[in-house]
Design a protein around this nucleic acid. Structure first.
Lengths: 181, 181
DNA sequence: CTGATATATATCAAACTGATATAAGACGTT
DNA sequence: AACGTCTTATATCAGTTTGATATATATCAG
């Protein structure tokens, strides 16, 4: 699945500008499992417009430059359906945090604690965001399902980090003491 | 964190060829939270060799082409320590599966079931691999920590998918029935 | 003895990121 | 009222990374 399909998918739910799509994938609903930059969104929209998978409505705002609101066309819906036929690629999880944890021997105790707590606070914030956007509108089944998945997985990560915090910091302290001997 | 740091980190644990590094990030220990392709690994190794962060030992195998076994140098260890000073970037999770679940209205019941079960079986297999590699050597604390994280998170995902399977397929069937009316 | 799979290095077009440029309104603050 | 910063909005681009492919040898199953 590429950025094109991603944009089609979002625009199948609601019309939006490139800027709004970017906001959705970095703050909204989609932010927890989708990524896309301006550098990929804008070219994709322009391209799909020329292929008539999308239409634009230039919303003129006095003084400001025009806002280009994109909407999916029937040909776009067809293309989306086709793209959704193919099996999704396996999920991808990238964690520099876990990599550093694996190499924790190379970190000082303070560094370790700082990194750990930063990650824990990030995850807690993410869980809160997921829970907030879940209670807001629980109408759509797909929405509820994805929201529940997020709660389950991120919740498990938060709990794990909370439970292990003391043990980890003790271990790091013990290691420092060993090194001092 | 870039591919260079990743290679340094792996080589700080054990010397390896580019091919072996690739295997580790796609099958071994690191596979669950790291990604790297040949197209990034080989150039990184060559580059770091020229900067003397690494050394090579050409292991001549009669008949076969030489095997280039890379090892980290003391300058490499320094560079790694510096790279590990900076805070890790936030974890990234990409899921085409969840995206499709969000748009499940556009999928047929069979497609949905097929995608769902494929994902569930992938996740189950991943959990099994994590559990297998955890019991093997539980010496290093960092290793145990990361392994436990994997169990917690992937385990939560597997349980969620298993619990919701029937409900989801019922919902899809109900939706199809509605459409038929 | 044929096809599939594994070891091993390498390259490259295409895709994508992350940063930056541009421009205008809003909003706070000193 | 001037200043900085933030938000909205579009756009570009160097640099990184992916995913696929080429090359060559060895091994193993049927």
């Amino acid at each position: 699945m590429n950025i094109r399909t991603l944009c089609l998918g979002i625009l199948s739910v609601t019309e939006a500008t490139g800027y709004e799509i970017k906001k959705m994938v970095e703050q909204g609903m989609f932010s927890h499992f989708i990524d896309a930059s301006y550098g990929s969104i804008y070219p994709a929209l322009t391209q799909m417009l020329s292929e008539e998978l999308l239409s634009v409505r230039a919303e003129g705002q006095p003084g400001k430059p025009d806002k280009k609101v994109y909407a999916i066309t029937s040909r776009g819906r067809q293309a989306l359906a086709e793209a959704l036929h193919v099996s999704p690629r396996p999920d991808k999880f990238k964690s520099e945090f876990l990599f550093q944890m694996l190499l924790m021997d190379l970190l000082s105790g303070e560094q370790l604690a700082q990194i750990y707590d930063a990650r824990l606070s990030d995850l807690t914030a993410e869980l809160a965001r997921i829970e907030a956007c879940g209670s807001a509108d629980a109408t759509d089944f797909g929405h509820r399902f994805v929201n529940g998945y997020g709660r389950a997985v991120v919740g498990a990560a938060v709990r794990y980090l909370q439970e292990r915090r003391q043990e980890l910091l003790n271990e790091a302290a013990a290691r420092t003491a060993d090194a001092a001997e």
